[in-house]
Amino acid sequence: MTKTEFEPSIKSRPVYGVLEAAPGLAHLIVADGEGADAVTEMIARAGTAMLASTHIIYMPGPNGCDKSAALQALGAAQFRSSPSFAAASSRLAKVVADAHMGTQIYVAGTEGLIAQVCQAVAAQGLPYESVHTEHRGSTVRRVQCVHCKGITENVTHDPFKCSHCGLSLFVRDHFSRRIAAFQGVNIDAEDPGLVPDSVERFK
């Protein structure tokens, strides 16, 4: 399993790289699901010396994939396995707020996780683009309904019903880093009730 290849798209749609260790005074790594593989591969290439100044936060992917044992076995200075991003987010916020310049930040896994970690980092003033990212695993999307503003997690189908207001939304590739979500727009606004068949686009 290697990094996910996405179709070329519009300029607001994020693109991800391959995790590569960079020089730094400390390393913060956040991953979910299959993202664990990107982390172990990076450490295998970079050597284990960085682990003494590394903090890893890990959670299972939206598809249930859980590789926490493998990550814990790496022996990083700090390791935390969390049941979900929501459960990990206050720890993440505290760690980022306490961090100093020279801390390298890495995220691997699903788009929802990558977006929310980058969002938390950018909120503390580190440039968004300086976070190292790699996509692995599920391609489900985090989508904000432009009408009611509610965010639906783990969207697999397009169009889908907003989990908050119930409108039928089509999923655009237009992506907001500030909100950490793709945009969902009502598909039958002009012809209420005329909703095309829903297709599983994100797995």
Partner: peptide, 10 residues
Amino acid sequence: ATEMGWPALS
């Protein structure tokens, strides 16, 4: 700065 892990954008 690069050697110490500062992002180029900072």
